[in-house]
Design a protein around this nucleic acid. Structure first.
Length: 445
RNA sequence: GGUCUCAUCGUCUAGUGGCCAAGGACACAGCCCUUUCAAGGCUGCGGCGCGGGUUCGAAUCCCGCUGAGACCGCCA
């Protein structure tokens, strides 16, 4: 890394499913390293599994990456100088090099397939940027439950290249300088090194990333619930939060900074600081990070994050100004950890209907409250401070009265909830007319 | 079974031989604030897997053990 060769990294998913957490994590670290070094981030689609690969998944993966903010510099959709970027379009290339290996006696045909020969006694150790020195001898590449050395299939009977072979050809031809991928690929690396050598190519740098585990410390899978990045969007997590959270799985800046944006992360990122231990995906932490980002959002941006969830709940967002809606969310500050929660907790700003549904007046002393509400609505100015002053005066002038005895019913009537921001502020924002309508509807005045 | 890897609070982590009677964050508990709930502030709980070395000195280096994981496919 002392040379000043441009850093080129790639994310190479196979389109056999949506972008999942593990894939997003890998893509993210590649992106980080590219941006940190002012290098290039390449997207390559590994669609050599004819049966499982689909165009739809390829598109989902790409939009998932875009959602996370991981834009690539070269890829199947935008091209580049090292294409094509879809393995199914590079078949002749794989074929040519495979034939070359056959001609040189380094591989042999077996029916339609081509197999790479593995010789005994070869040192196929390598130095990983994250894991350090990894020592392996070719004699270890045995068949399961046998002493027989296993040769490597490079071209399958259907004419498609295998993963371990295609990845070498592509990474070399695309000038990839750093191969950054999941730790589950460490065992594949020595095999790939064998192929690099047979072709006389320089081996790139390798950096393997720790796995992401579920709560039970098992590899993250569907059993653990949401695995697709999109499911998190639908649950109300924001892309900036997912980015931040994922970046913290296996990496830290070294100081105590834990909430950051993409640019800050790219500046601070170092492969040498990546952790070796598999990390457990912790929802509590994700929630916290999401909440922090939610708090920091610009009001108009925050509104754009929440709106879809109000709409989904069938609330009439169009009957309000964006200013009003954004102000109501500002008032919600700190309440709710996801966009979805925040939308649920603030529905009464958008509509009176959910309030009616929640209403339950069983234990209210309506006569006592009428006097209070009359005083409140007698306020010359509909301002939170004024309303609160009136409420306090009212409480002070009534023997044994407590603020909560009046504030809570007001909260119930206005929001239908036991919990809300300061109720006088809510009242101010809702406006006198709307408040009066709600209170009268419930017969409290 | 073979090969490889990993091991600091429940979780994410800081820590690369002395500054560590191990720091931060999340979670949890308590207190303060308060019309409620959050937010915020403060306090607390809680960890170097075990055993041997090396060293004046080890969470940090070495060995063994134990535990966990990955890979061993004409899947990627």
């Amino acid at each position: 890394m002392t040379d000043n060769k441009e850093v080129r990294v790639r994310f190479a998913p196979s389109p056999t499913g949506a972008l999942h957490i593990g894939g997003g994590h890998t893509a993210l670290f590649n992106w980080l390293w590219a941006r940190h070094n002012n290098g290039k981030f390449i997207l390559r689609i590994e669609d050599t599994d004819l049966v499982r690969s689909t165009k739809e998944y390829e598109e989902t993966i790409m939009s998932g990456m875009k959602w996370l903010g991981l834009e690539w510099d070269e890829g199947p959709d935008i091209g580049g100088n090292f294409g094509p970027y879809r393995q199914s379009e590079r078949l002749e290339i794989y074929r040519d090099y495979a034939n070359k290996l056959v001609n040189e006696g380094k591989a042999y045909k077996d029916g339609e397939a081509i197999i790479f020969k593995v010789e005994h006694g070869q040192d196929i150790s390598f130095k990983d940027i994250v894991y350090g020195q990894i020592d392996v001898m070719s004699d270890g590449l045995k068949e399961k439950d046998s002493d027989k050395l296993k040769d490597i299939v490079i071209i399958k009977s259907d004419g498609m290249p295998t993963y371990n072979y295609a990845v070498v050809i592509d990474d070399h031809l695309m000038n990839i300088t750093h191969v950054i991928r999941g730790e589950d690929h460490i065992s594949n690396t020595p095999k790939q090194i064998l192929i690099y050598r047979a072709l006389g190519w320089e081996v790139p740098e390798f950096a393997h990333l720790p796995m992401i585990l579920g709560r039970d410390k098992k590899k993250l899978s569907k059993r653990h619930g949401a695995t697709s990045i999109y499911e998190y969007r639908d649950m109300g997590y924001m892309p900036d939060s997912m980015f931040n959270f994922l970046a913290l799985l296996g990496w830290s800046a070294g100081d105590d900074k834990e909430i950051f944006d993409r640019e800050e992360a790219a500046n601070l990122f170092e492969l040498s600081r990546v952790t070796k231990k598999a990390a457990v995906f912790d929802f509590d932490k994700l929630n916290h990070i999401n909440q922090e980002h939610l708090k920091r959002l610009d009001p108009s941006v925050r509104l754009s994050m929440i709106k879809p969830f109000w709409i989904e709940a069938g609330l009439p967002v169009d009957s309000h100004s964006d200013k009003f809606l954004a102000d109501s969310l500002t008032l919600m500050a700190g309440r709710g950890q996801t966009a979805k929660e925040m939308a649920e907790f603030s529905d009464y700003f958008v509509s009176f209907e959910p309030v009616k549904k929640r209403w339950n007046s069983d234990d209210l002393d309506k006569e006592k409250l009428k006097e209070f509400f009359t005083a409140i609505f007698g306020s010359p100015e509909w301002k939170a401070e004024k309303l609160e002053d009136i409420a306090r005066d009212f409480v002070a002038s009534h023997e044994g009265a407590k603020m909560k005895e009046y504030a809570m019913p007001l909260r119930f009537a206005l929001t239908g909830m036991k919990v809300s921001p300061g109720i006088f502020e809510v009242a101010e924002l809702l406006g006198k007319e709307e408040c009066e309508k709600r209170v009268k509807y419930f017969g409290l005045m």
